[in-house]
Design a protein around this nucleic acid. Structure first.
Lengths: 173, 173
DNA sequence: TTGCTATGTAGGAATGATTCTTAACAAGGA
DNA sequence: TCCTTGTTAAGAATCATTCCTACATAGCAA
């Protein structure tokens, strides 16, 4: 996928985004690779051409592109590790509103390892299915961000929600 | 699952772990809930009974329990967000050695949303299947941690691998 | 072409989860 | 009871990410 500057320009215009050199460079770097770089990876790559760029800009731009649906975040849950004493095979329902994680157990989901799409040479050890959405409560509450697709959840929002949870916890104790 | 102190003791003994009050308290707190707490959540909960406990101990203990297979980490990839300009439905093969993420596209995996295990009242917006394992290269290299199940990868190891990648990147540029 | 305005960018500080280092402590075997 | 080794605590360090704010600029209108 070799995108020209004009391709990207019209892509951005179509989403109502301003076309800036930094923004184009970041998107171009991301679209030109299949290896799922981190924000920091992209920062280093773009900094070769734009030595003055700040990491801040990369985060802000990725967040904007994500909101516009031009970019997807591969791992939603990069903020904190979460633990589970249930080590039997099971999968998760994750509420994007309140961040609750519910277990689901299902044989069909456990058997996905035999999926033909997995290349022979990749040795699968474990797998996990995650469904993202909204629990009953959050479908009607302010946590529900109805206009935004799942991939547009801003880390900022996640962080804020997390802090709220924490302060709630502190109040309780 | 209401575990007694003795249940936990024998569980730990079976894995060759020393039985300490902090460790029991942390495991008990985790086993007593289904809500997938974070390390910080557990720290706050255990701190009610052990006000002198340090967050450090919680991290160390969770890491130990994870290595012993008594605890599972729900979100492997909590360290950094990774981005993808491919916003079409697809899934991932994740190498636990080199942390490479490969895309796989497969209709059957895209259709999982109709799985009967998902409660009606949960509104699914997106889903993602992640296969964890080792790519061809890492099956034979030192990245391969053959004795350890997927859930025993230490965050420490992940972090180290990440730093190695970063320094490699710095050397290149 | 010029000027205006909203949006984008950069710099620096702050936040917060996690890890590192080190020294004291304690579980469990001899 | 003593010793050894694994655990714990404290404090500092690291690092991704976000916040705040002032300055810069893309894009529109005149």
């Amino acid at each position: 996928m070799q995108l020209t500057h004009d391709d990207i320009r019209s892509l951005f215009k179509g989403k109502g985004l301003k076309v800036t050199p930094q923004r184009v460079a970041i998107y171009k770097a991301l679209a030109g690779t299949t290896c799922h770089p981190t924000a920091s990876d992209l920062y280093h790559q773009v900094a070769r051409d734009y030595p003055m760029i700040s990491p801040n800009t990369v985060y802000y731009t990725l967040s904007t592109l994500r909101e516009a649906g031009l970019v997807k975040e591969v791992n939603y849950w990069h903020d904190q590790a979460r633990f589970d004493a249930n080590v039997t095979p099971h999968h998760h329902l994750i509420c994007l509103g309140c961040r609750t994680i519910l277990d689901i157990e299902n044989l069909a989901l456990n058997r996905l390892t035999s999926n033909s799409a997995i290349p022979q040479e990749f040795q699968v050890i474990d797998h996990q299915v995650e469904f993202y959405g909204y629990c009953r409560t959050c479908q009607h509450s302010s946590n529900r961000n109805s206009s935004a697709p799942a991939h547009s959840i801003k880390a900022q929002h996640i962080r804020r929600t997390h802090n709220e949870q924490k302060s709630q916890r502190n109040e309780k104790s």
